[in-house]
Amino acid sequence: MNHPTPDNDVSRRSFFQLALGWLAGAFATAASAVAAVRFLVPNVLYEPSQRFKAGKPEDYPDGSVTFLEDERVFLIRKGNTFRCLSAVCTHLGCTVNRANKGYHCPCHGSVFNDEGKVEGGPAPRGLPWFLVTLSKDNRLLVDKGETVVADKYLVV
């Protein structure tokens, strides 16, 4: 049992008892908070892979801009060069539409030009370009985890 001591005269023992008690309490609270937050952060994501195969180069006619729905990207062929542009608006994540020239976002009206650069609206950045390579079995391979500069092409 603690003996009541006046405020200005805390014995060494009760000081250590108090300090220990508070420390233990603070530690337990902090640990529970950390554990709770950590619990809520998922360790495994069941999201589709960022890399995907986009078919054979011949599937895309020269000069075409093809929207790949499931992947939310545009595949662009010019001559024998291939590029891949993200269709996810950098503003708040809506899917942009291909316009006659460039791309329009239906949500808050961002406009991007053919190079993905912002021409108008609230989007803070241009649409990113993704790395396109050719797999061994002659398929286009896109990696949405890997952004590249606009004038990097895959030449087939």
Binding site: E69, D70, R72, C94, T95, N97, P106, C107
Partner: peptide, 9 residues
Amino acid sequence: NPIHPPNPA
């Protein structure tokens, strides 16, 4: 439909 936002959303 995650592909087509309604216009306007």
